[in-house]
């Protein structure tokens, strides 16, 4: 991916998410939704690191970015949220319960971790170099079955990549208030999992770390763990006003926004052109979904 493609993908996610938020606030969508504004970097990186024809990818409630990156068809995500038959899960799943080829999401926080370990078991027995990846949040780090998954993956030696997107909050609960350590390194290393930590702001750096982890899982057929420090600029779900997030945290992350980081590597004219291209694509997706 060159920087233009990276920016295009990041902005496509962000502008689609903003569109989805605005449709919800206008009362045009049903149910709930969890957007990933600010957290676009991991999905964009995985869009080229994961091979949907052989690898598996699982995630949870905050997966619009992954969904759009895996399908390449945002209309199947928006259509799903709108309950359309051409949605990713034929309109049965809504925002949280979607699938596409070997990509699956579910609404139980962290519950896909043991499932992904089981997929990795199958992939190991299949032979070949396919891997299983699961993406989850800091809140999921306190679900017992997620910890059980770390233990099983390492003790059974399975080709699974754990990606923790640490955005500092589980819904409104700051990690500091519910964890003795605010970085999870020691906990993860307690399961003897190879661990790397990286901030989502510098895409090239993030990409290098994830690529390295993916390649190790592919070749060594054993687990890897990457903790990505990130931030969500939007509410937890459609109605959340983010009263619990201090201004300083937002300020830091506005400085370290992954989108800004990539945009800075392009000329203003290039950025503008990409913005325009994205805006047009979002409008096409929206028009398709309201007319089909």
């Amino acid at each position: 991916m060159d920087n233009k493609e990276i920016l295009y993908k990041m902005l496509l996610i962000r502008r689609m998410e903003q569109k989805i938020e605005s449709l919800f606030s206008q009362g045009l969508l049903r149910g709930t939704t969890h957007c990933c504004i600010g957290e676009e970097a991991v999905p964009v990186a995985l869009s080229v690191l994961i091979d949907m024809d052989k690898d598996y990818l699982c995630s949870g409630h905050r997966a619009h970015g992954l969904s759009m990156m895996m399908t390449g068809k945002p209309e199947t995500l928006l259509g799903e949220i709108m309950g359309k038959p051409y949605g990713m899960a034929k309109g049965l799943g809504g925002s949280q319960h979607v699938y596409y080829k070997n990509y699956f999401t579910n609404g139980i926080t962290g519950g896909m971790a043991p499932v992904t370990v089981g997929i990795a078991f199958a992939l190991k027995h299949d032979g070949g170099d396919a891997i299983a990846t699961v993406v989850f949040g800091d809140g999921a780090m306190n679900e017992g079955y997620v910890l059980e998954s770390f233990n099983m993956a390492q003790s059974m030696g399975l080709p699974v990549l754990f990606i923790l997107e640490n955005n500092g909050y589980a819904m409104s609960t700051p990690i500091e208030t519910v964890n003795p350590y605010t970085v999870f390194e020691d906990r993860v290393k307690g399961f003897a999992l190879p661990y790397q930590r990286v901030e989502a702001s510098d895409f090239d750096n993030l990409f290098a770390v994830l690529k390295d982890a993916v390649e190790k899982v592919r070749t060594e057929r054993t687990p890897q763990f990457v903790e990505v420090m990130t931030h969500r600029f939007c509410g937890h779900s459609k109605s959340d006003k983010r009263a619990y997030i201090p201004q300083e945290r937002d300020d830091y992350w506005h400085e370290h926004d992954c989108v800004k980081g990539v945009a800075a590597k392009l000329t203003p004219a290039e950025v503008e052109a990409i913005e325009a291209e994205v805006a047009q694509r979002v409008e096409e997706v929206y028009q398709y979904c309201v007319t089909h």
Binding site: V115, G118, A120, A122, E148, S149, N151
Partner: peptide, 13 residues
Amino acid sequence: QGFTGLGVGMALA
């Protein structure tokens, strides 16, 4: 819970 989930994942694959 973990190894039942492991079974679910195996079945999914």
